[in-house]
Each structure stands twice: as C-alpha cells, then as structure tokens.
Amino acid sequence: MSIQHFRVALIPFFAAFCLPVFAHPETLVKVKDAEDQLGARVGYIELDLNSGKILESFRPEERFPMMSTFKVLLCGAVLSRVDAGQEQLGRRIHYSQNDLVEYSPVTEKHLTDGMTVRELCSAAITMSDNTAANLLLTTIGGPKELTAFLHNMGDHVTRLDRWEPELNEAIPNDERDTTMPAAMATTLRKLLTGELLTLASRQQLIDWMEADKVAGPLLRSALPAGWFIADKSGAGERGSRGIIAALGPDGKPSRIVVIYTTGSQATMDERNRQIAEIGASLIKHW
C-alpha cells in the first residue's frame, strides 16, 4: 500500500482519535458579512469528516447552483462504474471539434489522439474542462443518470439537468442544476469515506481534487503551510461562485467545507476574496 493510499485508508482512524471539535460562531459572522459585502445569498456548511456531524452552517438547506462543483460527483459516478466493471479508466475516447464547448483548455489539445477516461476526469476536476465533463456525462448516460446515481446514494436534493455550459445559467428560483450545502457536503463525505467506492477509487477521487489547479484564489489562499486540501470550485452566471473541499491540518483532511453564493453584482475577484476570507476565519478558529 502506498503512503497516499495509507493516508486515505486511515482518515477515519486518525479522526477518531482527534480531540473533540467545537464550532466557532466567528466564522458564521464572516459568512454573514460576506453576504453584506456581496449583496447576495451565501450558503455555508462545515462537517466533521469522521462523524458527519454538522459543526457550523448557514442557509444549509437553500438551493444554490452547483456550477462546476458537480464534476466531482460526476467522476465519482464514473469511478463507481469502474468498480462495477462497467468502465475502464484506460479506455480512450475520441471526439471532434464539434464536441468542444466553451472553456476546454485540455480537451482542445487532444482532438487528434483523444483522451482516456482517467485523463478526462483529471481534466474535468483539476482544470474544470467543460468538454471533458460533457464527454464523461455521455459515458454514464447524461445528466439524468448522474441525478439517479445521487438518488441511489441517498441524495434526493442534488440534481443535474443540463450539460456544460448551460448548467451554469443560475436563474433565480430555478431548481435545475442545483444542490443544497448540506446535501453536497453529505454526498461528498460519502464519496470520500464511505463504502460506495473502493479504496482505490476513493484515493483516485481525492487525488484529482488535491491536484486542483484553478481554485488557488479561494480556500487555498488562506491555508497555512502543512495543511491538506482537496477541492473543486465552480463559477456561473449572475454572480455565482462555489467551492467544495476536504481539508485539515497535519497533512490530512478532517472536515468537509461547502460554500456557495449566487445573485451578486460583485466582480469575480471580490467573490473570490470573500470566500478566501471565510476560509481564513475557519482556519483561525479551527
């Protein structure tokens, strides 16, 4: 067993022997301040990774656009098919120029040779490549099948209805392509620590998230040296922004954090800054 596999296998073990965790309302004060600064709703939840206990939450059962955070769930569904012998990570998928959609920095470079399922998941999570996500959605049967996968996990809230990039439209009061912070946090925890996926697939999923290259201005910008984070960000229309993450000190994750916002007129930089400040408060009061 590799060191990384050992780390993920012992996530519940280490967490069980940690000192009790206590909620700190100071972080919620910052979440509410972010709402004021952005002029928009902000949803927040913080779960203990081992027990699933909610440590703090704000608007945990209000719907927010998922945006690209759905790509972690998508690759979880792909990995479940791999575990069941219905898919192979090494299978190569070929596609054409007509398949390319807006923001496809990886797939646009491989029109000639195609990409493997493993490479597509890596591109979808680490670079948020939209064509990679659409190609992977095709392998599982489309958005409705991802929703069905989530329902089978016990998540009857999260739903995907459309493809990239239309799913980022974020129309107010439109339930399409949305989740709730509580539902997303619980589902992410199941994917990373539950028995739904094999140990190898859980490790692969967290490795992809740990290698995320496009979430630097968010929670990662607030992390002290030595902290662990595996995350996936999302951005959408109407001032929408979000991030889902597993993080913790001492090089291992111990909490799940989900943050979503929508309806702001603020710039992307300002949305990023507010999420980073929430992260800084979380870490300060850990």
Rank of each mutant, 00 (worst) to 15 (best):
P25T: 12
T27F: 04
T27E: 02
K30C: 11
K32S: 11
D33N: 06
A34H: 04
Q37I: 10
L38A: 10
L38T: 08
A40S: 12
I45L: 15
N50Y: 09
G52Y: 05
K53H: 12
I54Q: 14
I54C: 12
F58S: 14
R59C: 04
F64L: 03
M66S: 04
S68R: 00
F70K: 02
V72L: 05
C75G: 11
C75D: 01
G76T: 11
A77L: 07
A77M: 12
V78A: 10
R81Q: 06
R81Y: 09
D83P: 02
Q86A: 09
E87P: 03
Q88T: 15
I93P: 03
Q97C: 12
V101A: 11
V101F: 08
E102V: 07
E102K: 08
S104N: 15
T107M: 06
E108I: 15
E108G: 15
K109W: 08
K109E: 06
T112L: 13
R118A: 09
S122P: 03
S122E: 13
A123G: 10
T126Q: 09
D129V: 00
N130H: 02
A132K: 00
N134W: 01
T139P: 04
G141E: 14
G142Q: 05
K144H: 14
K144T: 12
K144D: 09
L146H: 03
L146I: 06
H151E: 09
H156Q: 09
V157C: 08
T178E: 03
T179M: 01
T179D: 00
T186Y: 13
T186V: 14
T186D: 15
K190Q: 15
L191H: 04
G194R: 11
G194Q: 09
E195M: 15
E195I: 05
L197N: 05
A200D: 13
R202I: 15
Q203I: 05
Q203E: 05
D207M: 09
M209L: 08
E210F: 12
A211V: 15
A211P: 04
D212H: 04
D212T: 13
V214D: 03
A215S: 15
P217F: 07
L218C: 05
L219E: 02
R220L: 04
L223M: 09
P224H: 13
A225F: 08
G226V: 04
F228T: 05
I229P: 02
A230K: 01
A230M: 06
S233L: 01
G236L: 02
G236W: 01
G239H: 04
G239L: 01
S240G: 10
G242S: 13
A245T: 12
P249L: 11
G251N: 08
G251A: 10
K252M: 10
K252P: 10
P253D: 14
I256G: 04
V257Y: 05
V258W: 00
I259K: 00
I259R: 01
G263E: 13
S264N: 15
T267R: 08
R273M: 11
A276E: 06
A280F: 13
I283S: 15
H285E: 07
W286I: 05
